[in-house]
């Protein structure tokens, strides 16, 4: 389980709207992220944005959520998704939720 660190600001731009803050993960196209207070703005788009949003919204099994939406097998995508989310943790853009 992941969450957004207190020191990260973000703005979500939906695929068909310019009012993206608070949007649902499935409709998202782009997520802008900023580590507070001195970071450089970063952008995630497409699947990267969706994975960040699913994790940020507290989805417990991101790989299963993606697998059910795309028809892929969980086993084939789980390592890739795990590595990607852990790279976001390493960059300070997500953090593990305490259990």
């Amino acid at each position: 389980m992941f969450r957004v660190p207190d020191s990260v600001a973000y703005d979500v731009i939906e695929a068909d709207s310019d009012h993206g803050i608070g949007s649902q993960a499935g409709a998202a196209e782009t997520v802008y992220l900023l580590s507070l207070p001195d970071g450089v703005p970063l952008v995630l788009s497409g699947m990267g944005a969706i994975l960040w949003l699913l994790a940020a919204e507290g989805v417990t099994d991101v790989a299963s959520a993606v697998a059910s939406a795309t028809g892929e097998s969980v086993g084939s995508i789980e390592p890739l998704i795990r590595d990607y989310l852990e790279s976001l943790v390493a960059d300070g853009l997500l953090e593990h939720r305490p259990v």
């Binding site: 703005d11 731009i13 310019d18 802008y32 450089v40 703005p41 970063l42 952008v43 995630l44």
Partner: peptide, 11 residues
Amino acid sequence: MRDATMPVRTA
């Protein structure tokens, strides 16, 4: 992951 065309509203 950097983007030079960040929307004004995001900035």
